[in-house]
Simulated scan of single mutants.
Amino acid sequence: MLLQQIATSIAATAGGEAGHEELAPLWAEPWVFGAVIFAILVALMFVTLSYTNLGRRHEAVDEHADPHRQHPNKHDHGQGH
């Protein structure tokens, strides 16, 4: 049944003007789309690179064990008491 529908649709598209479809008009030249996408990606790359110094702003500080936290850190092996 499905193969018959596929064969019918292929036969319907093959008859008459097969392979002659008019393309949708573009509002700019094709190279403009590539240039705009490239510029957007370069801008996003610079935004990403601007956040690389966040890990180097301050020295790492050990977190103190707070027994009143809702989900206390169970990995301090009793050193926070």
Rank of each mutant, 00 (worst) to 15 (best):
M1P: 04
M1L: 12
L2W: 03
L2G: 12
L3T: 05
L3D: 03
L3N: 13
L3M: 04
Q4K: 08
Q4F: 12
Q5S: 13
Q5I: 11
Q5N: 09
I6H: 08
A7M: 02
A7L: 14
A7K: 14
A7E: 13
T8Q: 14
S9W: 03
S9G: 06
S9L: 13
A11S: 13
A12C: 07
T13K: 15
A14W: 09
A14Q: 14
G15S: 15
G15C: 02
G16C: 04
G16T: 08
G16E: 10
E17M: 07
E17T: 08
E17A: 10
G19V: 01
G19N: 03
G19W: 06
G19T: 05
H20I: 13
E21V: 14
E21C: 13
E21D: 13
E22N: 05
E22A: 11
E22I: 08
L23Q: 13
L23F: 10
L23P: 14
L23S: 10
A24L: 09
A24I: 12
P25Q: 13
P25F: 06
P25E: 10
W27G: 14
A28D: 03
A28E: 03
A28H: 02
A28S: 02
E29F: 03
E29P: 00
E29I: 00
P30H: 00
P30Q: 05
W31Y: 03
W31I: 04
W31S: 11
V32R: 07
V32D: 02
V32S: 01
V32H: 02
F33R: 02
F33A: 03
F33N: 00
G34P: 00
I37K: 08
I37D: 01
F38P: 00
A39S: 14
A39M: 08
I40A: 07
L41Y: 05
A43N: 11
A43Q: 04
A43K: 05
L44C: 10
L44P: 00
M45H: 03
M45T: 12
F46M: 14
V47Y: 04
V47N: 07
V47K: 05
V47G: 06
T48L: 15
L49S: 04
L49I: 12
S50V: 01
Y51C: 07
T52R: 13
L54M: 13
G55M: 08
G55V: 04
G55W: 01
R56K: 14
R57H: 04
H58D: 02
H58R: 06
A60F: 13
V61Q: 15
V61I: 15
D62F: 10
D62Y: 09
E63S: 04
E63F: 05
H64L: 12
H64M: 02
H64C: 06
A65W: 10
A65P: 02
D66G: 01
D66V: 04
D66N: 10
P67Y: 12
P67E: 03
R69W: 05
R69H: 08
Q70I: 12
Q70T: 11
H71V: 05
N73G: 00
K74C: 00
K74I: 01
H75Y: 09
H75D: 04
H75W: 12
H75C: 10
D76Y: 11
D76F: 04
H77A: 06
H77Y: 11
H77T: 02
G78R: 04
G78M: 09
G78K: 06
G78A: 02
Q79H: 15
Q79T: 15
Q79F: 08
Q79E: 15
G80A: 09
H81W: 10
